[in-house]
Amino acid sequence: MTAPEETPTVAGRASLRLLPWTTPDGRPCYLSTDRRDSRLSLLADDVEAAQLDSGAQVLAGARAVLADAGAGERAVRFALTRAVESLGEALRIAESRGERG
């Protein structure tokens, strides 16, 4: 996997956008374009928005599970698993947006 400090560059400058998905083997995907309105850029924006919306729903569900004193181990594990997935997606989006300035 490419570390954040090893972001691929074009012509010596970091101009690649980290996309909100990975390759089948888990490596990061990048888009080389200066156009924020390209078809793939807009698709990436839509995926990011869907991921953030899903994260908000996961957060609400996890809070409900944690507030339920009778929630079993399976419910807590499921909520935590989804919360970890959503946090990973949110951090990837934050990293991507930070690189774009």
Rank of each mutant, 00 (worst) to 15 (best):
M1H: 15
M1K: 13
P4R: 03
P4E: 05
E6D: 15
E6V: 03
E6N: 15
T7I: 11
P8T: 04
T9G: 00
T9F: 01
A11H: 11
R13W: 03
A14C: 03
S15C: 06
S15E: 15
L16H: 08
L16I: 02
L16A: 13
L16R: 11
R17S: 09
P20A: 02
P20E: 00
W21I: 14
W21V: 14
T22I: 09
T23Y: 09
T23F: 07
P24G: 11
P24Q: 06
D25A: 11
G26R: 09
P28C: 05
P28V: 09
C29S: 12
C29R: 14
L31E: 13
T33D: 07
R35G: 01
R36W: 07
R36M: 06
D37C: 06
S38Y: 06
S38G: 08
R39F: 08
R39A: 15
R39W: 12
L40V: 15
S41Y: 06
L42W: 10
L42P: 11
L42M: 14
L43D: 11
A44E: 05
A44W: 06
A44C: 06
D45A: 15
D46A: 13
E48I: 00
E48Q: 14
E48Y: 00
L52S: 07
D53W: 11
D53M: 05
D53I: 02
V58P: 08
L59E: 14
L59N: 11
L59S: 13
A60K: 13
G61P: 12
R63K: 12
R63H: 03
A64F: 03
V65L: 08
A67Y: 05
D68H: 10
A69P: 04
G70Q: 11
R74D: 15
A75G: 02
A75Y: 02
A75S: 12
A75P: 04
R77W: 03
F78K: 14
F78V: 10
A79G: 05
A79W: 01
L80V: 14
T81A: 10
R82P: 01
A83S: 15
E85S: 09
E85A: 06
L87A: 08
L87V: 10
G88F: 05
E89G: 08
E89W: 11
E89I: 00
L91T: 07
R92C: 06
I93N: 10
I93W: 01
E95I: 00
E95A: 10
R97L: 12
R97P: 01
G98R: 13
G98Q: 09
G98F: 03
E99P: 00
E99R: 12
E99M: 07
E99F: 04
R100S: 13
R100C: 03
R100V: 08
G101W: 08
G101S: 12
